[in-house]
Design a protein around this nucleic acid. Sequence first.
DNA 1: CGGGCGGTTGAGAAGATTCAAAGATGGTGG
DNA 2: CCACCATCTTTGAATCTTCTCAACCGCCCG
Lengths: 254, 254
Amino acid sequence: MSSNHPAFSRASSILSDQARCVDILVAKGRFGPRHYRAGETIVVQGDDETRAFIVRDGWGCVGRTLRNGERQIIEFPVAGDVLDLSTAVAGRQEEFSALTEMTVWEGLSSRLRTLAESETAVAFFIAQANRRRRQTLVERLADVAQRDAAVRIAHFLLELGVRLSLNGISTRGGYQCPLTQQDLAAALGLTPIHANRMLREARTLGLYEFRRGQVEFLDYAATAEFADFDMDFLAAAEASPLSIRDAAARAAVP
Amino acid sequence: MSSNHPAFSRASSILSDQARCVDILVAKGRFGPRHYRAGETIVVQGDDETRAFIVRDGWGCVGRTLRNGERQIIEFPVAGDVLDLSTAVAGRQEEFSALTEMTVWEGLSSRLRTLAESETAVAFFIAQANRRRRQTLVERLADVAQRDAAVRIAHFLLELGVRLSLNGISTRGGYQCPLTQQDLAAALGLTPIHANRMLREARTLGLYEFRRGQVEFLDYAATAEFADFDMDFLAAAEASPLSIRDAAARAAVP
DNA sequence: CGGGCGGTTGAGAAGATTCAAAGATGGTGG
DNA sequence: CCACCATCTTTGAATCTTCTCAACCGCCCG
């Protein structure tokens, strides 16, 4: 498996789109940068929410606590992700917090939507972000519903790697990852204990290592094989001209 | 528990919104009605897709088959739901088929998006539909990740009831439901065998009965209790003026 | 009437959870 | 600088849930 698969060579096409979009939001939509400290709650579950956010850097966490007290993590927004919680019914049902130090561009979601109608760059960027967001959510559902714990975790970490690589902050060697084993477990519907055991198994098998703060792929190809990972994850979310190149690259590799 | 909870008395606010939206799409967007037979595939996984659909009646099924051959059902579109698979990365990753006889309004998703920019009724209807869609997906994730099989199935059937009640085709007594036990299992990440056992348990407990073609709640309140079901599911997706009434009704009931 | 599909049941095996406890690690205040 | 605390991680053993495999039933449709 070559190490320059499109998923790892296309870095930061997102970042330039984001820059263009943010310029417009700042200039015409009164968006502004804002910093949150690690652990800080940004949107409280149950509140009506009118803000929208674009992540500049850091890791967020969108979760939901069920009536029985269990907590389900829904997504981990990272750089390039757009969150419009008012659009997502989320204000009332979901909670948004900062996992690490985090800076976002923040503004009224009504303005975001208005600008999306007049500025194609904004509409395009948001649409792309929503596509990625939905695909990630669907992938999570498939993870939890169909794959056993060991595969599930490996798959999830590979997905994260691809998402981060879109921003150029991940390689096949690994990436910085602030998640704890408990976050991992809460996102994947496992007990922390079991997650821990599966991580040990992965280490033993020489697939990857997960430490607080760092994911390191010891053998990326073997991990992808083990997790039955589709290297085209999120590929279709990219601009279509690339999908031709993708197809060519894909045909050439095996 | 009163039988006229807002979720069951607000029927067909969706249908009138839909009618308004469809009028515009037909008049200005070249959308037209189209009929599909039960079992017919509408969008094939892997295809690029440029159409968008609004369900008039019947049940659809959006699924995805993983590389290992497992099949995950993602959602069951019913009347009032909007599917723009091109927006959802879905064309390439997801498959859309008709579960029952089904009629939809169909057209180019590019036109849908264009009209959404100029016609607020269209934008509003699509936004509402997407909200419901995301909440349903999040709920499914929580189902599969956090709730055990028996609760998961009960919760799912209650959700479905609320979604259908928005169209006035469900009551607290039950509703028509064309799903097989296998569909249920594929949507909820269970084996059909286990789903079957849990359905028997529900019957034994006097909660509800699930037969091919029909869901019947023997004791709606007890089922909701058993499933730890939040009666406000999808409530926030409705026009906000109602949420005041909702809160009042909620406060009055217990 | 025979085949296919959906539903039903049992028994054994695998996967994941619970409870209980102890070893790291990092930050804080004395 | 060290003791201490909180949080994260690791391990073991018993238990429970869910899956797998292997049947069998019943019904509808050709």
